[in-house]
Amino acid sequence: MTLRKKVVLGLYVLFLLVPIYWLLNMSFKSNTEILGGLSMWPRSFTLANYKVIFTDPSWYEGYLNSLYYVTLNTLISLTVALPAAYAFSRYRFLGDKHLFFWLLTNRMAPPAVFLLPFFQLYSSIGLFDTHIAVALAHCLFNVPLAVWILEGFMSGVPKEIDETAYIDGYSFPKFFVKIFIPLIGSGIGVTAFFCFMFSWVELLLARTLTSVNAKPIAAVMTRTVSASGIDWGVLAAAGVLTILPGMLVIWFVRNHVAKGFALGRV
């Protein structure tokens, strides 16, 4: 790696990390210190902001709700997308190209538009304010994405493997679970990462479909902020805590992601 490349990359990473550092920095300060003047690191280090979040159920339940529906969504998306992606990568069937494009168009519908119909749809089937409602709604954009990514990985697996397995007497479900899925482990890792990511960061649908029981953390943040001025310290602490689950996920799948990206198709 040449020096110039290192400098460019270094500058970019710095650009990515400084705003996050600033949030972290603020989360360890008291409000008087934040508003009192600028300091590069907390003068009087305090964990009070985090204490607020971990002792107040309305805060930490927001995290649990978000994690719950995001996990649910990732599981649903992967379960339905795996066979579908296999079909797209191995067979030609009636209307396959159009179906694929139609799936992609669901990523294009501006969510702002669909808020009200979504709200009414889920209310009318009695799922309003449940985790499953948010998980299902997020499937709208995550399932097409999962099919898209997985199809790419599956196309990379030679077809001869399928044929050999069938000759050896494997039934389709057995072949799929025992042989095929382990082969595309990295692909599943990358897909899970993307599903988690898009479900975790989405706020509009999640906020519209929930009121109390399944309210996501992002919504808790906005409401608390508008209540009594802005409590910068707590806001920053809550922000830092929303970054952590994502980092944990990426830490766990880091090898898969590196390998998945290295396989060349996302």
Binding site: F193, M197, W200, V201, E202, I217, G239, G246, V249, V257
Partner: peptide, 10 residues
């Protein structure tokens, strides 16, 4: 990947 994993309102 960090910025991609931060909720949009954050």
């Amino acid at each position: 990947a960090i910025p991609l994993l931060i909720p949009w309102n954050v």
